[in-house]
Design a protein around this nucleic acid. Sequence first.
DNA 1: GGACCGCATGTAAACGATTACATTCGTAAA
DNA 2: TTTACGAATGTAATCGTTTACATGCGGTCC
Lengths: 353, 353
Amino acid sequence: MAARTRRAEIGVVDLARELGISTATVSRALNGSAAVRPELAERVRQHAESRGYVANRLARALSANTSRAFVGFMIPYVDTPAYSAVAAELARLLSEGGPAGTQMILTITENDPERELRQLRELLASRVAGLVISTSTGVLEDTKRLLTRLPVVELHRASGIDAPGVFSDDEQTLAESVLHLAALGHRRIGYLGTPTALSNGEARLRGVRRGAELAGLARDAVTMCLPEPTQENGHRGALELLGRSPAPTALLIGGGALSIGAARAVRASGLRLPDDLSLVVYGDPSWFALSDPPLTTIAVPYPELASRAARLLLGRLDGVAGGGLAGGGLAGGGPNLIKPELIVAGSTGPPGR
Amino acid sequence: MAARTRRAEIGVVDLARELGISTATVSRALNGSAAVRPELAERVRQHAESRGYVANRLARALSANTSRAFVGFMIPYVDTPAYSAVAAELARLLSEGGPAGTQMILTITENDPERELRQLRELLASRVAGLVISTSTGVLEDTKRLLTRLPVVELHRASGIDAPGVFSDDEQTLAESVLHLAALGHRRIGYLGTPTALSNGEARLRGVRRGAELAGLARDAVTMCLPEPTQENGHRGALELLGRSPAPTALLIGGGALSIGAARAVRASGLRLPDDLSLVVYGDPSWFALSDPPLTTIAVPYPELASRAARLLLGRLDGVAGGGLAGGGLAGGGPNLIKPELIVAGSTGPPGR
DNA sequence: GGACCGCATGTAAACGATTACATTCGTAAA
DNA sequence: TTTACGAATGTAATCGTTTACATGCGGTCC
């Protein structure tokens, strides 16, 4: 390490030598400290510019020790609006926040708890100032322990840790959906949702049960399938539910990725909506905009959730770095449970025959 | 900085003191250096584990100086398959690459050259080992200069810098699309594409022109609109083209975001496909899967592009860090121009009346 | 038995920035 | 004139690692 032959990057030492001043003055000039003669400061800045100097953020963060250099964003997938919208919003807010903005480290867990733990370790190693996380199915205990070390904001899924979060308030809207279908006359409903191991899966199922109860449906009126929430499983799950006997006359989907897959499966099956089957999907309405007839949708306002989550994290960064603020449900001037809206459209109607 | 009161994080120094050995040995043990007695190494690891030690990656990168700690991913948007697929693939490959994986810093330019430059500076400050970039419209000269400093892989858009890239080979497929429409009898085609200031916009327009020529269409057979590629502009642009007189009997879209917006506009307009209008869209087929009738699509294999780009970057990281390898068009065992396929479906047919 | 070698470990110098504290110098107050 | 003070700058410690080099030590070869 000692005698490095290639000195590719130039640093404050070089600038100082070339200008005949000390590194302290260079640093002060570049950071706009008041204690430097304005003309000298200007000369330093000009020289730095002309030599193409770019301050090493890693060294800066190491020195400052209390680093707002990075935040982490750890999610199962990135290719659905549920997550890409948040990524975009978080990146936008960060880049607007000041001259030397905080940068976002994105990691994908693919819903694998082991990977989640490994990547969380790496994020901690990078000394991220905070973290927005959507936990995997079955968070490991080690993971939970590590999550107490820094300001965390949960997204979409609650994992029982002591941190604030931003969630879609699904229970009620799912109940409404069941009532809607029951009111149309459906007595056999297939529910395709996320596993109850996921907090949102549990809330949604609760909603379905409550809806069925309120509607006075028979105990076995709802047949269900709760696979890992991927588009493929949405496809498979829909076909499976349709294949059960007696066949459901309506399909209610409780999950964004599942909805995409299920909608495709229904589309490909040739069943006519709503004559042969009623369909209620879940997620960002824009994903279903091309469908004909338009789909009855549990519309989740992802951009709103995104903005809340991002602001919530940014707010927490100003607090003590130690985390553990006993996350209240509120911050940024509004509730962090956002109720999706049931938009009734042409894909639901009275059962056929 | 001297007398820091709060010593929140524990480091190698603490571990060394507590174990009665030197920091060098601790470091060696934790990094699996062969020169440490196995039993001692094990003891160090256990102790580190029990004290919840997480190595500071910033310090490590600073010391190693040739850091593979981070790579950058700089794109205009993240909420279309064109980009989110690459983000996902890049994140996946990175996290698989070794125990202390390289992390990905994601930044969004929103197509703003100023923002692009600012964020590139920040990425350089973080000493990213490399960069996958999809440049904005109108890259600044300063930006180009900075891009020579590190291994860069371009994606989707070529900006004339000396770096390899991965692109969709659009020209030919666009030409085929025009021929397809002409063969069906269309003599008035609306083309909604990206601006020619973007390299891919230029290639696509070239394809359209070539197709029109090969088909023997009249000089004014193609009417066009080339806005900034956003979904909103896709919507507006489609309506604008349809409003021109004489009205086009077919719409050809050259851009992913534009296609989404345009498809929605057409859907909302009530025009029947293909009787009232023929429509060819561009992008990831899965986005259009719900449409009825299925849309004739210029299907870009984004996952394939993603994988190539990610591999290409990872390959370049092994080369000299200085960049400027006079990027050949090849790497990773295949061409980096990928031709999208024209999938003919129900949305195109002979012009009505 | 001495020279030599290799192994395990320690000492301390980097990496590139920030900043507490020391120093210098000029000027105002006593 | 002496003391004090504040402004501008320099000196050097520090952040947490890694690693070149030094050291000590037990064994082998002649």
